[in-house]
Amino acid sequence: MFKFFKITCDEATTICDKSQYGEASVYERMQLSWHLLVCKICILYSKQNRKISDILKLKSDDCKKNNPCFSKKEKEDLKEQLNNFN
């Protein structure tokens, strides 16, 4: 019956990436954990994947804090261009 769970490393790592966003299905998670029992390399991959996710999380928080916008000067320029266009 285990052949239902048998997947390649490529599929396993895709599921692993998906589960980083909490969007892998139950079936996929079962497939993945079965694969992780037999594949050391993918265990390492998923460990490191988690670390990368942590770093990306930091980056994402960082991005939300500073949102670059139009400066005053740019807005004035834009207004002038629009006026000329009319």
Partner: peptide, 10 residues
């Protein structure tokens, strides 16, 4: 097929 290429193994 579908398995790790040696140089890309983590």
């Amino acid at each position: 097929e579908g398995n790790w290429i040696e140089e890309r193994v983590p």
